[in-house]
Amino acid sequence: MEPLLSCENVSFSYENTAVIKNLSFHVNSGDYLCIVGENGSGKSTLTKGLLGLKAPAEGKIIRGSDLHGNEIGYLPQQNPAQKDFPASVFEVVLSGRLNSRRFRPFYSKEDKKIARENLKKLGIEDLIKRSYRDLSGGQQQRVLLARALCAGSKLLFLDEPVTGLDPIVTEEMYKLILELNRKEKITIIMVSHDIKASVLYATHILHLNFDKSFFGRTEDYIKSPMGKYFFSE
């Protein structure tokens, strides 16, 4: 099977310092990959690379043939300015359809239908007329997840999706993501600093550590020296 996304001997530098060296991994359709690593290990640089916003210094990032140009559902880290943004939930979710618009300036009925379907899929169709700024943190993340699904439903790229959520809502968010992966067969790539939760849900782990990064199945990660180090306590 052709991988959905693969990295071959990729190196990235940030402000003229190499942060990732000689990294290779691949993501197959249906995988759930967690990218973990300490602060400064290059998680956000790699994120930019995988989204096609930054070219690697060396190596290649290859997108599979059934993953078209912009068909990645991306859930960025929340920015603080967004929390009190005056926009309705529907306006936010619909903006996920922007990449399918190309040069047509307005959304079609089809776009609106897809937006409604994704709200339903995440169980938040009753929020459709609410204002984004009146929602709780967990609800806001669900809305942004619905928007990501509108942009692309093959691969979801989640950048620290539970930051700032309380433990109960965090748990719900993880379950929702797992459900999307298992039931809807959506491939997940999640950047996380929560190694314990990553091991619990992901099928694969990529632990960034300069030129000694680990990539493999979760059960192998737990047995690896790196995994043992984190789970010895």
């Binding site: 989204l51 912009n70 990645i72 926009a87 922007l98 990449n99 307005f106 928007r147 790229f157």
Partner: peptide, 19 residues
Amino acid sequence: YNKIFAVTFDESFAKANGT
């Protein structure tokens, strides 16, 4: 209008989607 909304609301998302 729709692009301006997307860019105003969330630059990183708009960028990742090729805007």
